[in-house]
Amino acid sequence: MRRLIFLAPIVLFAIVVAGFALGLRRDPSLLPSTLIGKPLPSFSLPPVDPKAPGLTSADMTGGSPRLLNVFGSWCVSCRYEHPVLMALKSQGVAIEGLDWRDSRADATRFLAAEGNPYERIGDDEAGRTVIDLGVAAAPETFIVDRQGRVRYKQVGPITPEVWTSTLAPLMARLKSE
């Protein structure tokens, strides 16, 4: 019995080391969204182009799973991401846009020059909705399922690699759900 007490430290230590070893395999900089598995917070945003429709959270439910892409004409990485979004649009992927801290004139000019991959665009000039969504920096993209629940958040631009390795399989799965 007395011997067992003296064994306790090394047993506890072994557990801790095992925990550290498992912990080493993860990347603390990957911060997932707290929204995952939950419905999008409700929002209703005016359009960028007065003739087009705006974007509300209700638009995100029903139909097919879709992407919600937070962008801004001022954001360099968004410009880098833009051709990928245009390619996805041509493949028939539904993408909604959330224009963040942007003037309507700048956004219109940007989309006219580079092309518009979005079905609808909501204008979040004040940045309120973006705070509700927990966005740290543009671009960020939420994958939303048919029920309007957030299933994944991509931080940073969607590159062709990210699309083929992570997002495309997830979208295919959501489509069959």
Binding site: R2, R3, F6, L7, P9, I10, F13, A14, V17, F20, A21, L24
Partner: peptide, 21 residues
């Protein structure tokens, strides 16, 4: 570093379990 801690502290605590009683 984890390996180093595992070996050094592990050996020390092993010695402890063996000798301290």
């Amino acid at each position: 570093i984890l390996g180093m801690i595992a070996v050094m502290t592990g050996l020390a605590l092993g010695l402890f379990a063996w000798r301290a009683p």
